[in-house]
Nucleic acid binder design. Sequence first.
DNA 1: GACAGCACTGCAACCGCTTGCATTAATGGC
DNA 2: GCCATTAATGCAAGCGGTTGCAGTGCTGTC
Lengths: 344, 344
Amino acid sequence: MPSTIRDVARASGVHISTVSRTFSAPHLVNVETRSRVLACAEQLGYRPNRAARALITGRTCNIGLIVADIANPFFPPLIKAAEAQARRHDNHIFVADTNEDAIVEEELVRALAKQVDGVLLCSPRMSNSLIEQLSREVPLVVVNRQITGLPAVVMDVAQGARLAIEHLIGLGHRRIALAAGPRGSWTSKEIRRAAMLAVRGPGRELVITGPNAPTENGGLAVADQIQKSGATAVLAYNDLMAIGLIEGLHTRGIRVPQDISIVGIDDITLSRLTRPKLTTVATPTAAAGRAAVDMLLAYGDDRRTTALINLQTELVIRDSTAPLSSQGSGAAPVVTPSTTETPS
Amino acid sequence: MPSTIRDVARASGVHISTVSRTFSAPHLVNVETRSRVLACAEQLGYRPNRAARALITGRTCNIGLIVADIANPFFPPLIKAAEAQARRHDNHIFVADTNEDAIVEEELVRALAKQVDGVLLCSPRMSNSLIEQLSREVPLVVVNRQITGLPAVVMDVAQGARLAIEHLIGLGHRRIALAAGPRGSWTSKEIRRAAMLAVRGPGRELVITGPNAPTENGGLAVADQIQKSGATAVLAYNDLMAIGLIEGLHTRGIRVPQDISIVGIDDITLSRLTRPKLTTVATPTAAAGRAAVDMLLAYGDDRRTTALINLQTELVIRDSTAPLSSQGSGAAPVVTPSTTETPS
DNA sequence: GACAGCACTGCAACCGCTTGCATTAATGGC
DNA sequence: GCCATTAATGCAAGCGGTTGCAGTGCTGTC
């Protein structure tokens, strides 16, 4: 039913190759012929079949976008921006969700490989070496992870974490907890590294809990440990965890920010609307989506394309952080060794 | 570089057709041959090229998913569920965002048509007739809109709206406002229809404002009209608008729910976390995503497939609604004719 | 022992399109 | 006026698969 290049050729009385050229190399065909062909195509509602074209040109004009969890509010703005940018270049986007599972991730890259010109791997959970191997099978741009030799777009969460910790220290906090992210997360490692560095100083300690699921439930679940840690301030792996944590502390009668200060990371839309409004590190997710697509599309043009884009983050101070109140470190003064890793 | 069917054929010493059959009709090939072929394929890392296969079979095993706005928190759970369900059937999903634009929508359906087996059209903004026409070019399943003759998955927002209005009436409210959704939204029409019916009764009035953008800003922008309307309760087109509206009213010194009660629709994750927690009509978006994919995949099998799935909604009562307080209809007692339509 | 039937495999056309090469006609240089 | 260019188009191979048909060798039947 849908008309093919042959239908158009027949209708306009030329060979199919002329029709083909009308669309993919117009300068090679006579103006009159061209307009005649275009008219027929228009009338027949002809559109070149991209899959067929891809078969011979090797370019699908499709991009794969793999994220850990579509429903995690961190990703939709990234997906949206990537999709828009892709379409601006006449590309389409496959979106796939790994459910935070490294196995699924690998399988997805392989499954998509033949149908796309490249894959955007967002916050991957796979090992570096596996990613490197996959990048030999299909062009890859990694988002939220830095792997030497691979093009990547990262957001400078280290800097963000540093700003957050400095903010907390400035408020008088001395014992600060870090609610870490999921296992395999590069971002989580970065945050930890930066936080440890930033906390360093006389009488100051960093208590690390995790790994945790990067969700509201993950935050809820860690509330108990946080309470017992004796920390008066917490930096959470992301806003979702921060929000869950606030909820969890609330049910334990601990008030934020009066008893404990909380800082999130990401600045998802939600964070402006919760109670209290969340102090957080804003990450430029939309910009990251756009940049990643651009990088991928530039892949062929110039192998020496900027291999790493590092986007600035900034601290947004709202209502979930407050000066350390002299009387109330609401959390129990249980002493735990600093920088303890609680497995899970 | 990636190995083709020919490589596998050569390696295993059979004709390419045998390799092909090994993958698409295994029962037609001898067990020994089959395992030999499979071994070679495995070793070469061979995977059938879906695009090439699609060219001749006509089945791409891809699905298009078109939504109005990926970043609108209503959609991600739907996208996630659809993607998971699609993958369960070994299909992949193209996601595209129309930015609430009917023109873009049409273009996207056409652009995707050749690369997919069908398209899920979520909350379309196009006219019914255009959708019908498109459905002749590519299998379509419409989500959140009912068009006679087309397979559709809808959520029973009419029932939800009725429950919401009854809840408000039960709380003593008499003058109720409806913050309508965007132009072209079937859901918005349904809600209006149901709300008008439900409000009907002695001394009761429904004030309609809109169309409005289905976003937080849309809600913010309508706060003024709501205030002037003299309504003591509002049903908003969706949670995002409801939240924006609460914000807008707050800056005007109007408290929710003490001065005005607000009900949203959708029950997005956010709604459990705002201040106050939102009373809202929960819509089963994940179920809708799954159902829509199933419908699309069943398209070929049975033309008489259930043409309409209507999913139940339910009212979730939280903290944004309260009994009408005798003293305080916080909104100014300006009299506006009932059921006025404010254009925008 | 001839033959029908079956299981298995090869052959080749084809899906819709691109592209290097051949062909033709028109053009310009001298 | 002849030849080398150039512009425009046709031809056909091929991208990576699928599939109807034909061929091959066995088996079982009578």
